[in-house]
């Protein structure tokens, strides 16, 4: 049921992408978020698609797995596509039926925006799919380290992140469990009018909230019992290591950026 949601999930494999330092991956993913917006014609979009495709291949995460996980987001992508196709009135008129008017500019715009969304989601999913939550947190803490000077609680922030990432699968499991229990009592989550269906989720959400609060409390207690008191003076078991391939990946990304600047119209 919910096993297809892959947001925040880690896909165990051994690939060049898995072996990269989490810091370089974080920087790259963040950087990528910006350069996606540089693309504005077919050539630049082609370039980005090629780059993303190569990255996906390198990650060894099977396409089918990605596709399954992204299905819910695909609906959003398709929705954006159609919104633009029907509402943008630019370029030549291609088709007219009653009040429906489709323009060339609309199609192009729609495809571009949908592409942009898809690329963004793909790349960010790849980050979590190829990096364990612990690595992400460590990397983030490192990268945000300088902000400590301004008394920002960087360690706590990173910890919060890793806890939420860590508990996404737990929460999904719990959801499935309670859903099943209520379905066994005749609850129906999948049919009926919208209003009733929304009400059908109360028996699911209340137990989820209750158990989440309980779990948070237990976790806090367990951490305190083991002497946790924040990041002050805390050492690490696993040190992050920056390799040549990390520098190489970032240089590649810079090259891509330059190319995008040159080729965009």
């Amino acid at each position: 049921m919910l096993q297809n949601v892959i947001i925040g999930q880690y896909y165990p494999a051994s690939s060049p992408l898995h072996r990269m330092d989490s810091r370089s991956k974080l920087i790259a993913a963040f950087f990528y978020l910006f350069i996606v917006f540089l693309a504005n014609n077919w050539v630049t979009y082609g370039l980005l698609i090629a780059f993303t495709a190569v990255t996906i291949t390198l990650s060894k995460v099977p396409m089918r797995f990605l596709y399954k996980g992204l299905k819910p987001i695909l609906i959003l992508v398709v929705f954006t596509l159609f919104l633009h196709v029907f509402l943008t009135k630019e370029g030549d008129l291609l088709y007219k039926a009653g009040f429906l008017e489709i323009y060339e500019g609309g199609i192009i715009q729609g495809v571009f925006i949908a592409m942009r969304l898809l690329l963004l989601v793909l790349m960010t999913s790849l980050l979590t799919l190829t990096t364990t939550p612990i690595d992400i947190t460590d990397g983030l803490e490192h990268l945000l380290g300088p902000l400590k000077k301004w008394k920002l609680p960087v360690h706590e922030f990173a910890l919060m992140m890793s806890i939420s990432l860590r508990f996404i699968p737990t929460l999904l499991q719990e959801t499935e469990k309670i859903m099943k229990a209520q379905m066994a009592r005749g609850a129906d989550f999948t049919s009926g009018p919208i209003k009733e269906r929304a009400r059908a989720f109360v028996p699911l959400l209340v137990p989820l909230f209750v158990s989440s609060f309980k779990r948070a409390e237990e976790l806090a207690l367990a951490m305190e019992a083991r002497g946790y008191r924040g990041g002050e003076g805390r050492t690490r078991l696993r040190a992050l290591e920056w390799h040549k391939r990390d520098s190489f990946a970032l240089i590649l990304l810079l090259l891509l950026t330059v190319l995008l600047f040159v080729l965009r119209s």
Partner: peptide
Amino acid sequence: KPLRKKAGIVFQYPEHQLF
């Protein structure tokens, strides 16, 4: 539904399903 009415399941830790 008829099947689910016929076969009642008490899950592990059923108290988690109260709402």
